[in-house]
């Protein structure tokens, strides 16, 4: 299967069984480029030719280890086939949150190298290395992280908007649409968004289409709320524009009222239109 973008790699992972463990091996016309390692349907990390030592450099920098000390730990882990990052956490030289950030950065950088012109991927089931789920990633998280890095300024603006608009137990994602991508890109998330990048994208496409429709009969700042029954309770799927981006999320029955109230308050205080909030 062809892989022109990282999203296509995520879509392949999303189509696997939830228990799937193995490698998505990526090749180009020049030969093998690397692989994406998957355990129980979650991405552990990705390796790309030319970036072999990048992860140990990222980990070494976060653990403040001298290159020589890092090298000996790297060789120790390689010989014993122990995950390097988790070994550093176990030894207490690296904080778990720093390992997660380094793995996320490395995985996204590797995917950028892997998923380019003429890339093709094939799935090979393998026994897992036993990575802790704490240090693995849902495809939606990786998808949103790529968007956040690519559109950093927009992401920084939207994170507080999501926090202020949605409460505990809600989830939401902010998306941008650009001329370079044929689909909305998630740039910021709040709460437990759907784990699958494919589902997150479907939510984004649904919101983009619905907001385009509302534009034909009302103003740009409109909020759409659709009531649906989820796990025995009524919830609301909401969508609204915020500046050059838009937001889609799920909240409780009273959530849309809270968002509308916040927008009305901001309108009064700042005198700006809803679409700019």
């Amino acid at each position: 299967m062809g892989l022109a973008t990282a999203f296509e790699a995520f879509a392949m992972v999303d189509e696997l069984e939830p228990s799937a463990t193995g490698e998505l091996v990526v090749s180009g016309s020049e030969g093998p480029r690397g692989a994406v390692f998957v355990e129980r349907g979650r991405v552990c990390w990705a390796a790309a030719r030319g970036l072999a030592r990048r992860l140990s450099r990222l980990l070494g920098a976060r653990a403040s280890l001298e290159p020589s000390a890092m090298e000996s730990i790297f060789l120790y882990c390689k010989e014993r086939r122990v995950p390097l990052g988790e070994h550093l956490v176990t030894r207490g030289v690296l904080r778990p949150e720093d390992l997660r950030v380094a793995l996320l950065q490395h995985t996204v950088e590797s995917l950028h190298h892997l998923c380019a012109h003429d890339a093709r991927a094939a799935w090979y089931p393998r026994a897992g290395a036993g990575y802790s789920p704490q240090f693995t990633f849902a495809t939606a998280e990786l998808f949103a992280h790529i968007g956040a890095v690519t559109h950093a300024a927009t992401a920084s603006r939207l994170e507080p908007v999501l926090r202020a608009s949605f409460g505990d137990g809600d989830w939401a994602a902010a998306f941008v649409r650009t001329n370079t991508r044929g689909f909305p890109e998630p740039v910021a998330t709040h709460g437990a968004v759907p784990a699958s990048a494919s589902t997150l994208l479907r939510i984004g496409k649904w919101a983009a289409t619905a907001l385009d429709l509302t534009r034909t009969f009302t103003d740009d700042g409109a909020l759409l709320a659709v009531t649906r029954r989820t796990r025995g309770a009524n919830t609301c799927l909401v969508a609204f524009r915020s500046g050059d981006a838009f937001v889609a999320g799920e909240t409780c029955e009273y959530g849309p009222g809270r968002i509308l109230n916040r927008r009305a308050q901001l309108r009064r205080m700042k005198g700006v239109s809803d679409a700019d909030l």
């Binding site: 759907p194 589902t199 509302t214 409109a222 909020l223 759409l224 709320a225 649906r228 849309p256």
Partner: peptide
């Protein structure tokens, strides 16, 4: 959610669109 078909959608009982 949870269906592979991209077009999979469910009809909902009600919705609203609110603007200023």
């Amino acid at each position: 959610e949870g269906l592979p078909c991209e077009e999979a959608e469910e009809p909902c009982e009600e919705s609203f669109v609110a603007s200023a």
